[in-house]
Amino acid sequence: MAAGATLITFDKVWKSYGQGEAKVHALAGVDLAIRRGEFVAIMGPSGSGKSTAMNIIGCLDTPTAGTYSFMGIDAGRLDRNRRAMLRNLYVGFVFQGYNLLARTTAAENVELPLIYRGVATRERRDLAMQALAEVGLVGREHHTPAELSGGQQQRVAIARAIVTRPTLLVADEPTGNLDTARTHEIMELLTRLNTELGLTIAMVTHEADVARYAERTIRFLDGHVASDSKNLEVA
């Protein structure tokens, strides 16, 4: 995999909601590029368009106008099911609220994306165990979310995101529900995945401390990219 090649491009991307006078532009002609292996923090106040941008990056949403290309594919023009396939093959998701299936064990949660890939039961189990080991949750495989702490739940979510060996990890406020110590642990984990696996990470956050773990910060304001800068190396 050629590190540094462009993974994601926004070419004059617009996203509009509503009609006529009430029409709102969440994104107003955004140009953006993210290369493979980058760890990008996306910041901005609520309503700035950062969430909309993230949804398009994660192939959950499509632009109203302009082109979104992912891995050279015009992902903005694909139908629901093709985007679902793209997500399943190349994108992992981590959410603020963990979004694990309740009353379902950690291992089963991690196996979930593999089920939709049609991976055989045994291989699924092995891959899930491996992913859980990578996030440091050995021995917790058969706990349900209710039996795990917030930090542990987010680790399960990360394991679920990386079990398919995705190209891109989309993280939406991954530490929003965690205390400082837990936040640090999770960010260390994401940084490690970024460097060790070469995983491209796009992370939305509103905390500057968290954004500092990324190597680049993109700030959104009123549907535009307000600033795009390299971060200083974290100590």
Partner: peptide
Amino acid sequence: TREIGIRLAIGAHEKH
């Protein structure tokens, strides 16, 4: 609904 959202995000097709 949320569970469906998770499944869809993770790559479930409509048919799944």
